[in-house]
């Protein structure tokens, strides 16, 4: 555990809690892509099957369980409890365009051709693109509430901090995970455009982020 890893995990947790509390407190999931949240629940489910096979640490187990529970709770809020506020009209990204290539790639490029390893790789690839329905939705409606942009900022920051963690681990432990690093770089690139808008419009401007 290094400072980048810890900061990345905290950032990830903050993002997920921000989103959950936003929906819970406002009793509305307006502007939130349910599809992205289902994809994230799928990411955690397919990656954390190792909870059954290997024990790392109490921290590791607890964080994995918290991410799993919060992701499913968020999906529940969007599709069940506050489904009246769900904007399915604008959440129109075709997720099969992500799931089909990601599944195919996981079968082609993995560390071992075993169910758990293929699912682990699938989760890493899927995470890299899971935010696309949300970004698509913001582009379509042309705006995002500031709290939604804070969520996206922390979610993007988390993977960027993991990149620093991987550089650190490579130099201190000789640890290099090609699949995670390449996917992590791709994932972070997806957020770069958003980071720019976040700094120029949300932090310097007022409230909502509206696109030109």
């Amino acid at each position: 555990m290094n400072i980048f890893r810890l900061a990345g995990d905290v950032s990830h947790l903050v993002a997920i809690i921000i989103l959950f509390l936003k929906i819970w407190k406002s009793k509305s999931c307006a502007g939130i892509s349910g599809k992205s949240q289902v994809l994230f629940a799928l990411v955690f489910t397919s990656r954390y099957l190792d909870l059954f096979t290997v024990f790392i640490s109490a921290y590791n187990t607890i964080m994995k369980l918290v991410f799993l529970v919060l992701s499913y709770a968020t999906v529940y809020l969007i599709y069940m409890r506050f489904r009246g506020s769900y904007d399915s009209e604008n959440d129109s990204f075709r997720v099969e365009f992500l799931l089909v290539p990601v599944t195919g790639l996981a079968f082609l490029e993995n560390y071992a051709f075993t169910p758990l390893e293929i699912l682990w790789t699938f989760s890493i690839f899927l995470e890299a693109v899971a935010i696309m329905p949300q970004l698509f939705m913001i582009t379509k409606t042309g705006e995002a509430e500031s709290i939604t942009t804070h969520y996206l900022f922390f979610l993007g920051l988390y993977r960027a901090l993991y990149l620093a963690n991987w550089v650190w681990r490579y130099h201190t432990e000789g640890f290099f995970d090609q699949i995670a690093v390449v996917s992590g770089v791709v994932q972070t690139i997806f957020y770069c455009d958003f980071f720019y808008l976040y700094v120029t419009r949300v932090l310097r401007g007022s409230g909502k982020m509206s696109l030109p």
Partner: peptide, 10 residues
């Protein structure tokens, strides 16, 4: 690689 370190990351 079957590196158990991978499972340490979230």
């Amino acid at each position: 690689s079957q590196d158990p370190l991978r499972h340490d990351e979230l």
